[in-house]
Amino acid sequence: MNLTLHVWRQKGPRERGRFVTYRATDVSADMSFLEMLDVVNEGLLLKGEEPIAFDHDCREGICGACGMVINGRPHGPKARTTTCQLHLRSFRDGQELWLEPWRSRAFPVVKDLIVDRGAFDRVIQAGGYISAAIGSAPDANAVPIRKENADLAMDAAACIGCGACVAACPNGSAMLFTAAKISHLGLLAQGQPERYERAAAMVETMDAEGFGSCTNHNECEAACPKGISVAFIARLNADFVRARLTEGRRLEQVGEGGV
């Protein structure tokens, strides 16, 4: 099959980008989408042109490195599928495709279709962890966890941090990403001690990174390759409200040498 690609080319973060049109000819429907780009890139290299830069690594939908907006949909037209797992059989012969990077102030373009998602790491740094020093853990079965909670936590923890939720959100919001981590940890017994501080701190960082706010469009869930539910956003909202409005019961300041 043949495809026409309009690809966003941008040399660096501060350069102006533009669409450049390429043709992928005689590609097989069994190819993955990225393999098709590999073929295009090999052709460019042989012509002495710079190949299209795109992030990818595991190519099996788990590392979260890949991702681009393909014809107006993050990760392309197929639900619950990362760009690397997309195959050309999802497209028609002769189809025209527009390939664009994630668009978000918090994800500046590094080159072509590559963006910098460091903001996600910083949101995690703000509190997306459980402070359990290595070596200090009690027996794994010391605290039973309701299976339903463990399963729900796993649903949230399935997030691969690809950024499609931000790319899909009309507001450029990172609520689904943040909510998934807060829910994952907040549903587990081990995550309780830091639960509310975590929610408050992660949301503050999320806001500071320049993501937009959530207006419940549900576009994030639709674009999420792991199908993470927006119900976790409601859970985050509840935790955040509780964190900011009702926590902090110790009124007096802890003085020097306190705690």
């Binding site: 102030r105 507001n171 576009e219």
Partner: peptide, 15 residues
């Protein structure tokens, strides 16, 4: 402000 550069092509799905 969170999306200073928009998409050339955009298709809504669940909104």
């Amino acid at each position: 402000a969170a999306r200073p550069v928009g998409y050339r092509l955009w298709k809504a799905k669940d909104s």
